[in-house]
């Protein structure tokens, strides 16, 4: 599954870059993130709760930062094991470009895969769910840096709010 996106953030690139490397910011912006602990300069351990279709699971996994080219780009890659729910892994190439007005354009390309029960029961929903999760992450991230910007679309939905059979 692949997706791309682009956001204009009303903050200078160095500030955006710093936020992208700040565990507290990342934790606040990753949907369903319960824990994000730095284990080295470029790696984190994470616990994330997600619901995809009928499968709800707590993923324990690692997040690594690679291809770091401060303050322009990096690759953020992660893999999580949701136990019997299966696994998910993916990588996002994030690129920051300075705009003439001092704002920053963040663009990303994500490639992600899922396995196990997630694939078996939720595959129809993976693309839409992943797109939604990415949107929510970057909108939250944008809002964090640029509270003046247009408020993120309110698409609070069943993704993690509603109760459902857990995996």
């Amino acid at each position: 599954m692949d997706m791309t996106g682009e956001y204009r953030i009303g903050a200078p690139r160095t500030e955006v870059w710093a936020a992208l490397n700040d565990p507290a910011v990342l934790k606040a912006c990753i949907p369903g993130c319960e824990e994000l602990d730095k284990t080295s300069d470029t790696s984190f351990e994470a616990k994330v709760v997600q619901k995809i279709g009928p499968v709800k699971a707590r993923f324990a996994g690692t997040v690594e930062l690679a291809n770091i080219n401060a303050p322009e780009s990096y690759t953020i890659q992660g893999e999580g094991n949701g136990g019997v729910a299966g696994f998910a892994k993916g990588a996002a190439d994030v690129h920051l470009a300075e705009n003439e007005d001092g704002s920053t354009t963040l663009s990303y390309e994500v490639h992600a895969t899922v396995g196990g029960k997630l694939a078996r029961l939720g595959s129809r929903l993976i693309d839409s769910t992943a797109t939604k999760l990415a949107t929510r992450f970057f909108e939250a991230f944008q809002a964090h840096l640029d509270p003046e910007a247009e408020a993120p679309r309110s698409d609070e939905d069943e993704t993690d709010a509603a109760a459902g059979p857990s995996a």
């Binding site: 895969t113 899922v114 396995g115 196990g116 029960k117 694939a119 078996r120 029961l121 595959s123 129809r124």
Partner: peptide, 14 residues
């Protein structure tokens, strides 16, 4: 099966 060998028709939904 997807290209990674994940079975994606795993229920009567699919």
């Amino acid at each position: 099966y997807d290209e990674d060998g994940q079975l994606i028709t795993g229920s009567y939904m699919d």
